[in-house]
Amino acid sequence: MEFGSCGIRGKCRGLCAKSSEDSSPAFARRRGQQETLTLTLLPGITSCARARPRPRPRPRGRSGWWVIRCPPPPASSPPPLLPIFTNTIPTSDPDRANHHPQSDPSPDWPGQIAADPTPRNPLPRPRARTESNMAALPLATAEVCDANAHLIMNGELRALQPVFQVYGRRQVFAGPIVTLKVYEDNVLVREFLEEKGQGRVLVVDGGGSLRCAILGGNPVQQAQNNGWAGIVVNGCIRDVDEINGCDIGVRALNSHPMKANKKGIGEKHVPVTIAGTRICDGEWLYADTDGILISRTELTV
């Protein structure tokens, strides 16, 4: 007895197509031969067992069995090949034919993305340390003193006596020094602050006068707008509330309500002596809430 791969005796009536050497089964039985059937599964049916055919009963008075041979299931087809993308532009698109893939703001091919060395969002470069932005790079005076003890010993780094009051919103500032020497006159002070500050610090030697103010709110507002880092006054100021609202550092001996003279008498870019320290034009000043330092050169920690 021989069976097909499905293990069912009988034919799959209505689901399999039959083919034999002779289209008449009776003729094959009369010759004493076994009938051979070839079953072809319909689409969607993987085996005869899933088809669930009804077995045909054996004819009475006949000998022999139906021999069903099912063809082996078709071999699984290999997976489809994925398309290979290249870093090229389809010439069928006239609008994109003249564009280079790396210059396209929205790449459409994986090869183009991998081959594009230019970052879409490059990191910002650090700002150069120049006089124009020196006001944004202050140093703590205590750390400067600790890191530059040898400069203190040889006199290249000096500290002003603690006689100044703190004004303005910027309590920490630094920059190259511009010196001015006046006495109870503020004309030259206004002229300096009307220029571009470029992160510099104006040091005004007012002779330590406590009889009038040589700096007011309007010049300080101009200094803020023109980019001055700070102002140090060996004298008095006024309009304190207005000055405290400005984004600039101001140091002065005290405040006084009386205004100064306007004769325009004074000296520019000359060495001055303030709070026991000689200060020259072009030196560097570092100020914070601990005090004020004067250095011959720019310092780092």
Results as ranks from 00 to 15, higher is better:
T277Q: 07
A260Y: 05
G266S: 09
P257S: 03
S255K: 09
A260N: 04
S255Q: 12
K262W: 05
W284F: 14
Y286K: 01
C280M: 06
R278I: 09
T273Q: 13
A260F: 07
I274C: 00
W284L: 07
I265W: 02
H269L: 14
A252W: 11
Y286S: 03
R278L: 12
G266W: 07
D281H: 15
K262P: 00
L285K: 00
K262T: 14
I274V: 12
R278E: 11
G282F: 09
K259C: 06
S255A: 15
I279C: 04
C280W: 02
I274P: 01
I265P: 01
I279M: 05
N254K: 03
R278S: 11
R278T: 15
G264L: 12
I265Y: 04
Y286A: 03
I279E: 02
S255E: 14
P271R: 00
T277A: 05
G264R: 06
A260D: 06
N254E: 08
A260T: 08
G282H: 08
P271K: 00
V272F: 03
K262D: 06
W284H: 11
T277F: 01
G282P: 13
E283A: 07
N261S: 13
P271N: 00
V272A: 03
L285T: 03
H269M: 12
G282W: 10
Y286T: 05
I279W: 03
L253S: 03
V270I: 15
I265R: 07
K263F: 13
G282V: 13
V272R: 01
L253E: 05
D281R: 02
I274R: 01
A275T: 03
K259P: 07
R278V: 10
S255G: 04
T273L: 09
H269E: 14
